[in-house]
Design a binder for these strands. Structure first.
Length: 154
DNA sequence: GCCAACGTTGGC
DNA sequence: GCCAACGTTGGC
């Protein structure tokens, strides 16, 4: 760890699950991702100790609300095969899981939500995945440089 | 609530 | 394999 730590951005609608919910729970299973590209990151790329920017989408304001870290690497998402669950996927097979999640732990709340509109104007973030046109992925890589710029503002 | 940008589905 | 129709995401 440390050596090859990576950084990520996870989006959540705060009305569904906010940074305050994570603060209360201390730790949560990041479930419900049903997009293959995001799934690949969760299953293959998020590693123990990686840092996470917790992003509030569909919110007022939308933006970076806090920090978390990965405390358990990808494992199958049981909500995908639970017919009673909102995130049930009738096509997924419990013997060959399609959908994965990770456990994240609360690190800290941002002093203030850093709004998307403000991120767009910060030097050094021009290439950030979040700011690229049409970027809707709910799990995105962040570079060390981008992470440090944002950390320095919060 | 609107709608652009994507992703997925399914007929052919 | 193409692509139109449909569903979802998410900023505004």
């Amino acid at each position: 760890m440390g050596f090859c730590m990576n950084y990520w951005l996870l989006k959540s609608e705060p009305e569904v699950y906010s940074i305050d919910d994570l603060k209360r729970d201390k730790k949560t299973f990041w479930d419900g991702v049903r997009n293959y590209q995001a799934r690949n990151f969760l299953r293959d790329s998020l590693k123990l100790g990686d840092m996470v920017l917790f992003y509030h989408s569909n919110a007022d304001p939308t933006g970076i609300a806090g920090f978390a870290k990965v405390v358990k690497e990808g494992y199958p998402d049981p909500t995908a095969t639970d017919p009673k669950h909102d995130h049930f996927d009738p096509k997924s097979n419990p013997d060959n899981p399609t959908w994965y999640g990770v456990d994240i732990q609360f690190v800290k709340k941002a002093k203030r939500v850093l709004p998307l509109a403000e991120l767009k104007g910060i030097a050094g973030l021009e290439k950030m995945a979040l700011l690229q046109k049409g970027q809707r992925l709910s799990v995105q890589p962040v570079t060390a440089k981008e992470f440090k710029i944002i950390e320095g503002l919060l």
